[in-house]
Simulated assay, not measured.
Amino acid sequence: MNQFSRYLKDSRAFTLIELLIVSGLVGIVMAAVLGLVVTTQRHTYTSEEVVDVQQNLRVALDFMSCDLRHAGLGVAADAIILEAPAGLRCEDGNGDGDCLDSGESDFLHFQTVTATGEIARIGVDGGVTTTSDEQTIALSDQKSARLLLPEGEDSAPVYVRIFRPSNRTQPLDRVFKVKAVDHEADPPTLTVTGFIESTVLRPGDLLVRVDDPDLDGDGDPNTDPPQHPNQVDYRLVKADTDDPDQFDLVRVPTGVDPDDETTFQRVAGKIVDVQFQYLLEDGSETAPAVGSDLERIRAIRITLVAATDATRTGNANFNPGQGDNVKTRTLSTVVELRNR
């Protein structure tokens, strides 16, 4: 018998029991690895949604803070510039799927000279007395001139009002159409049309952009002029999710249909609560602010709460055994009303 035959005689195959034991051990190890992968993946998804929630809050606070710093600009000194609720709510009282009907929501409402926030200042070389329908005006800087550029050849016309901050008046109570902007000139210039009488423009006067809804469809903003001062509302609307506690924070400026939420500006999602505290001139705080307190508001403390979606990563079954997995985050800031 040669050496190869002896090897074949002494060798043995795995038994069925050994194969079953090995298969069982491999299955246990693979199940443990798969469970670890799934758990890690779920924690990753949750962490990503928490980051999204925090970013939403930062964007919302930055947006609202910038907006509210313009509150009262261009508004008479004795006017009420703000409606001041304790918070925002969205309750679908009639079951039609939204909270746009009367009494279904509270909203923060304020007035300002321009809802777009786009403002250019007439420069030292821009003081003129207009003598024709069209006038070219020198501006103070290139950055503000670029704000009034039309967005493209097919974009809607850009309209402005002229506002004099020294006495909170308009030299001419009209809306003017921007015909041309030369932001590369020194100084930059803006050409507008719409002067119907001789008007004195002074250095320091403001050109403020306004949106014209053109409700009468005639293309002339002065036959049905945009509201002055402009109005901005912040409110909550139903979010596109099955989670009933989540809302979108939206901005509704002058020129937007308040009954058509498809035209609202979405500021942030995943919002579950919005609260306000109003700091008065004597240092006290109140919420809501009503009556004479409205005239004494000097700053607003905004507190926003957002959360992960209870029907997705926040679902109790998403991480079994851990109960409610909804993660909430809160951010707060104080905004001074500079124009009061």
Rank of each mutant, 00 (worst) to 15 (best):
L19D: 03
A32K: 00
V33D: 03
R42T: 07
E49H: 05
E49D: 08
Q55P: 00
Q55N: 08
N56E: 04
A60C: 08
D62R: 15
M64E: 10
A71D: 03
G74C: 08
V75R: 13
A79I: 08
P85G: 03
G87M: 02
R89G: 02
R89C: 00
R89Q: 08
G93R: 06
N94I: 03
G95V: 07
G95N: 11
D96T: 09
D96E: 00
C99P: 09
D101M: 06
E104R: 15
D106T: 15
T116L: 13
G117S: 04
I122Q: 02
V128L: 15
V128I: 15
T130V: 05
S132M: 06
E134L: 14
T136E: 01
L139M: 12
S140Y: 07
S140N: 11
A145Y: 02
E151F: 09
G152S: 15
P157T: 07
P157D: 04
R168A: 05
T169Q: 15
Q170Y: 10
P171K: 11
L172W: 11
D173N: 14
V175T: 15
K179W: 07
E184Q: 14
P187G: 04
P188T: 14
T191R: 13
T191Q: 11
V192L: 05
G194D: 04
E197H: 12
P203N: 10
P203W: 01
G204N: 10
G204C: 07
L207Q: 01
D211W: 11
D218C: 00
D220F: 09
P221Q: 10
N222R: 08
T223W: 03
D224L: 14
N230T: 02
V232K: 01
K238R: 11
D243G: 09
L249Q: 13
L249V: 11
V252Y: 12
P253C: 06
T263W: 07
Q265I: 13
A268R: 14
G269L: 01
E281H: 11
G283H: 12
P288A: 03
A289R: 10
R296L: 06
I300V: 15
A306Q: 07
D309A: 09
A316S: 14
P320K: 15
Q322A: 15
K327H: 12
T328D: 01
T328K: 15
T333P: 06
V334E: 13
V335D: 05
L337H: 06
R338Y: 00
R340T: 13
